[in-house]
Write a protein that binds this DNA or RNA. Structure first.
Lengths: 213, 213
DNA sequence: CGTTTGGGTGTACGTGTGTACACCGAGAAC
DNA sequence: GTTCTCGGTGTACACACGTACACCCAAACG
């Protein structure tokens, strides 16, 4: 059981992050105390500072950790080897793939999603801004992909972003519900069905939209 | 300066609610301490219990307070003396009126909205459930109103609720942005414009929707 | 090999916390 | 006019909090 210094450090760092994720199931980050976290990890309070300057900084790391996997996932859900022929078929496939990706991924990162749901609006300002920034990136990536469909000429750039915002908000809301529905298969199925129909609705609806009114 | 006992009690009760609203601008309910609230009000800590059993119970009162005005407002925004002739015109009017109502109301109840945004997902469980319940009521009221338009026959009851959920989520997200954009007229105008186009988009899109696919 | 580095420890402090308890004094009730 | 009710007070306690400080000891380094 010889362990290099870096390995050891990384291990307790990971333990601290996990401890915060677990404690945050019950109460927001701002309500956590250093001592509570330390006790959960099994270290003495002051040892915390060997890894993070503050709980807020730790929160920022958790935000990054949460989003890196998610963004890649959603982007991949909109990448096709052989894209569907019609705009309508393409949009339906995008809706379905995105929901599939979400339903598959959320349970694997449940605590991260619960953390995001909580801190997105209730966290320290820096954390809120970090989450908002990541969501904006997702919106822009989505808008870019939508702009590529053949029939997208009727939409202005503004309207593309507004549509992307609608879709991302909807997905976010469903992801939050999924994260909270942990382990209740009936609820998961209901949310999945709602998400699928809602995204289809919005995207098919968008096909009927003309920015020039 | 004679004051009836009931008046006096109501006055400090109000002061406590206001104090919590103000303190909650910076940190979530769960991070507040009794003594902090008491100091802000100007009473001794134990006096708090003359009015509320716990901070959580106080939170529930704030949720009720926040929603009663809002629900009436949104319902009124969808009530027409002489309803527009076409479904399309009706939907556009509903979108516009709802956004107008929101933009007018949010600044008047800014602290309440910020409170809701924070506690909706980060608050004590009872508070979260209360908020969710109120949002479900709003969704159902909206679905009922939409079902009344002549061309609504193509939508199943499920799809009506799913559409209402999409719309309410969008409005909620914009209300939260408005509450945070306090006093920056350019941001308010941008959010207003986004909200208007987004609701129009979703509602006009819904006209093209057919539940039987 | 001896020395340095750095994650983790234990003690000690001043401060803030929730709550129990006895008390006060003015409006309400009779 | 006397008594009762009850919102608000002040003191007191045991506990949790963040953080400063001196210390330990094994991996890393020369």
């Amino acid at each position: 059981m010889t362990e290099t210094r870096g390995e050891r450090k990384e291990r307790t760092r990971r333990a601290i992050l996990d401890a915060v994720l677990e404690l945050c199931e019950d109460e927001p980050l701002a309500a956590l105390s250093l001592r509570q976290v330390a006790k959960q990890v099994g270290i003495v309070p002051t040892a915390f500072y060997r890894h993070f300057d503050s709980i807020e900084e730790l929160g920022l790391d958790l935000v990054d950790e949460s989003f890196t996997a998610l963004r890649a996932l959603l982007k991949a859900a909109r990448t096709f080897e052989t894209p569907p022929a019609s705009d309508r078929a393409l949009f339906l496939a995008v809706a379905d793939n995105s929901v599939d990706a979400l339903v598959a991924h959320v349970p694997r990162a449940e605590r991260h999603f619960r953390f995001l749901a909580r801190e997105r609006l209730a966290g320290p300002q820096a954390v809120r801004e970090a989450v908002r920034h990541q969501l904006e990136l997702i919106e822009r990536e989505l808008a870019t992909d939508i702009a590529r469909v053949p029939g997208a000429g009727r939409w202005s750039g503004d309207d593309l972003l507004i549509l992307a915002n609608l879709l991302v908000n909807a997905m976010l809301s469903h992801a939050e519900e999924l994260a909270l529905a942990s382990g209740r298969p009936d609820v998961v199925r209901r949310v999945e069905r709602t998400a699928r129909r809602q995204l289809r609705m919005a995207l098919i609806g968008a096909l009927a939209w003309d920015s020039s009114r």
